Computed example of a mutant assay.
Amino acid sequence: MQLSKTASEILAFFRETHRKPGARMTIATLDAHFGTDPSVAVAVSELKQLGYVGVPDSGTVQSN
């Protein structure tokens, strides 16, 4: 399955800034970088469903 453009951009940003497995980033950081567009939340959900990231709580994304 191919990732959406926003999901690909988020994954690339995450990998550039947080290289270690288990590293965390806040949703606020993503909003600051990508804007508060609803597509960001959809992309995070997509990445979670595909196993690229975990979402330990509503404000945090964690690399897998």
Rank of each mutant, 00 (worst) to 15 (best):
M1G: 15
Q2L: 12
Q2T: 12
Q2G: 03
L3N: 14
S4C: 11
S4G: 15
S4Q: 11
K5R: 14
T6P: 03
A7I: 03
E9I: 00
L11G: 02
A12H: 14
A12S: 14
F14R: 01
F14A: 05
T17Y: 05
T17N: 15
H18Q: 07
H18E: 01
K20I: 06
K20S: 13
K20N: 08
K20H: 07
P21S: 11
P21V: 08
P21K: 14
G22E: 12
A23Y: 06
A23E: 14
R24W: 00
R24I: 02
M25Y: 00
M25C: 15
T26K: 12
T26F: 00
I27K: 06
I27N: 01
A28E: 12
A28H: 10
T29K: 09
T29D: 11
L30E: 04
L30P: 08
L30K: 07
L30Y: 07
L30M: 09
L30I: 04
D31V: 03
A32V: 00
A32S: 11
H33V: 08
H33P: 00
T36A: 05
T36P: 03
D37K: 09
P38L: 10
P38E: 07
S39T: 14
V40A: 06
V40T: 12
V42R: 15
V42K: 10
A43F: 08
S45M: 04
S45L: 07
S45V: 07
E46R: 11
E46M: 09
E46I: 08
L47Q: 08
K48Q: 12
K48C: 04
K48S: 06
Q49C: 01
Q49G: 11
L50V: 11
Y52G: 01
Y52W: 14
G54A: 13
G54Y: 12
V55L: 03
V55F: 00
D57V: 04
D57T: 04
D57S: 11
S58V: 07
S58G: 09
G59A: 11
V61R: 02
V61D: 08
V61K: 04
Q62N: 00
Q62S: 07
N64I: 10
N64G: 07
